[in-house]
Write a protein that binds this DNA or RNA. Structure first.
Length: 551
RNA sequence: GGGCCCAUAGCUCAGCUGGAUAGAGCAACGGAUUUCUAAUCCGUCGGUCGCAGGUUCAAAUCCUGCUGGGCUCGCCA
């Protein structure tokens, strides 16, 4: 399906043959030409001008003769200052469009499976409380990226790393105990750094109601262990539910405790020792990570004998590698930026391939209400939980708004706009556009202008107006753009593509009549409508949003 | 102070593998409706692409320095 650039590049490279050298060949790549034309262009002549000591235009004219014969091309011409413009042939365009019809949205952009497994780890918030709105951006980016990578033929697993071991977990347990113990006639002090959120007494109550009498009979240590287990289970259930309400699900919930209890830390520590990259100091075990690009050495085992997060993180990624993934793509919030350099050093010191770990850091989200930034604090009572946000604005709106800017940029999330049923709302605009397309198709079906009518080939040369051509261009470039978005790991681009297509569809719809007397023109435009519908659905599949057939 | 991210229209942001005239949404103003969804569309206004160098036939895009903003620098996770 729609693999324009690949097809054109292949044909061009064959056509050029001996005219260019092996070193020059990689420069012969086409790109979409500038707005206003439905052409692809080669800037190759300008790149060759220096080494060939010739004017770019002269080279263009020379090569143009060879390129002119490629199958997908109609008119090919050399233009100043040195481009070769390739106008696609009508039959090629028609074939490309037709190839999309009837293909399931979930596989429309799908390339052949390459058998490689990629793991995308995202959200991974500590199981010590409900998800915060900030986690929503990671959820959206991670889940869309995962689907996007599937289009490239990877087998993708979505994974949530559950940090259910270590001091944070202990603090969490003791915070619950502080509220729960009095119900048992006991006491437990709130730790200094304890969790003070309103949900903590709530958890204590639920756990007490469920097994208060059992807890009473236990010894202190077992009692705390039971509370930890219950607290973790309850919180994870709420996290899972919040994510599901946002349309995000995981293949694996990977427990940190599992790593510790099943010897993965010991295994990795032994590897470090074997490689001679650790040393003892002040009663702790250190990794000489500065040898691998880190700015300071890291403690692996604390003086008290407990493993650090660093050691377990090394074990975790080693475990991922052992599970056969060619890549671990980790999506983190900007507050984890400091982990990236140490993590890279960890990968190196374990001898894992340099490209095994990819990290996507997303910048912070500012929420807007009434044109004012919402100050997220537990005191003001403003929404802070992801679940509340999703319930307020809706699943699709939340997903779309979290994708409104590149992960590298900060994001403004306007709650009022997200809730609006207006076309200022990008989520709503997509839905409206899709419903409109469906309506046209319904109308056309009603008068027999879809099924058998579309069996005759469409004459795309009849698509001449700027609206026809603008829409056509949006359709033809879709796969190439999706491939770029996947390669550069930029899920937000899919939203921009979908929005751009929607805009073209509406401009086209407004200006050009689809259903009309001239059956050849009707057929050509109907093809645009049908393909637009397929592509919008395919984008929606990647974005994880639903589109209604009528509104 | 070190590391990473950002700086593009009044506001919020896109901008691919350097490539032809830098785009969208919102805001402002002006238009279009015997219509397949007007819940729409079109037009106008608006830009020294933070600053200064460099590389290149060609730089918003690559490199260096600077300025401003964000995140971050624990034997926490």
């Amino acid at each position: 399906m729609l693999n324009l650039r690949e097809t054109i590049d292949r044909q061009v490279s064959l056509a050029l043959g001996d005219l260019i050298s092996a070193e020059e060949a990689p420069l012969a790549l086409c790109s979409l030409s500038h707005p206003g034309f439905l052409d692809y262009t080669l800037s190759l002549p300008m790149k060759l001008a220096r080494t060939r000591h010739k004017a770019p235009l002269a080279i263009a004219q020379e090569l143009q003769l060879a390129v002119a014969h490629i199958a997908c091309a109609g008119l090919v011409e050399a233009v100043a200052p040195g481009y070769i413009n390739i106008q696609l042939s009508d039959s090629f365009v028609a074939n490309q469009l037709t190839s999309v019809l009837g293909v399931e949205p979930a596989v429309l952009f799908q390339k052949d499976a390459n058998g490689q497994k990629i793991e995308v780890e995202f959200v991974s918030a500590n199981p010590t409380g409900p998800l915060h709105v900030g986690n929503g951006r990671g959820a959206a980016l991670g889940s869309v990226l995962a689907t996007l990578l599937e289009t490239q033929g990877y087998h993708v697993d979505r994974e949530y790393y559950v940090n259910d071991y270590g001091s944070k977990m202990k603090l969490f347990t003791e915070s619950i105990a502080h509220y729960l113990f009095p119900m048992l006639g006991l006491e437990h002090p709130m730790p200094d750094e304890g969790y003070r959120g309103a949900y903590v007494p709530g958890l204590a109550q639920v756990i007490y109601d469920r097994e208060g009498s059992h807890l009473r009979s236990l010894r202190e240590e077992q009692r705390l262990a039971a509370i930890e287990e219950d607290g973790k289970t309850l919180v994870l259930a709420s996290i899972r539910q919040s994510l599901e309400e946002m349309g995000v699900s995981f293949d694996t919930w990977f427990s940190e405790r599992y790593l510790v209890e099943n010897g993965w830390n010991d295994r990795v520590l032994q590897q470090f020792r074997d490689r001679g990259v650790v040393y003892d100091r002040d009663g702790a075990v250190w990794l000489r990570s500065t040898d691998f690009g880190d700015d300071k050495d890291r403690v692996l085992v604390r003086r008290d004998g407990e493993p650090t997060y660093t050691l377990t993180d090394a074990a975790y990624h080693f475990n991922k590698f052992q599970r056969g993934y060619v890549k671990s793509i980790d999506v983190f919030g900007a507050d984890h930026i400091g982990h990236v350099v140490p993590m890279r050093a960890l990968m190196k010191s374990l001898g894992l391939p340099d490209d095994f770990l990819e990290v996507i850091i997303y910048q912070i989200v500012h929420f807007l209400r009434g044109g004012q930034r919402v100050v997220l604090s537990k005191q003001t009572g403003e929404i802070i939980e992801l679940a509340d946000l999703v319930r307020e604005v809706g699943k699709d709106q939340a997903r779309v708004f979290f994708l409104l800017s590149s992960a590298d940029s900060e994001l403004e999330f306007d709650l009022e706009v997200a809730k609006e049923n207006s076309l200022d709302n990008p989520a709503y605009y997509l839905k409206y556009t899709y419903a409109r397309l469906c309506s046209v198709i319904r109308q056309a079906s009603g008068i027999g202008a879809v099924g058998p009518f579309m069996a005759s080939p469409a004459d795309v040369s009849r698509l001449k107006t700027s609206e026809d051509r603008e829409l056509l261009k949006c359709l033809l470039k879709a796969q190439d753009e999706v491939d770029d978005a996947a390669r550069t790991r930029q899920p937000h681009r899919i939203l921009y593509l979908a929005s751009e297509l929607a805009k073209s569809v509406n401009a086209f719809y407004q200006k050009e009549k689809v259903i009309q007397e001239d059956s050849n023109l009707a057929r050509a435009r109907m093809l645009l409508v049908l393909v637009s519908q397929c592509l919008l659905q395919a984008y929606a599949h990647v974005l994880g949003v639903t589109l209604p057939e009528s509104m």
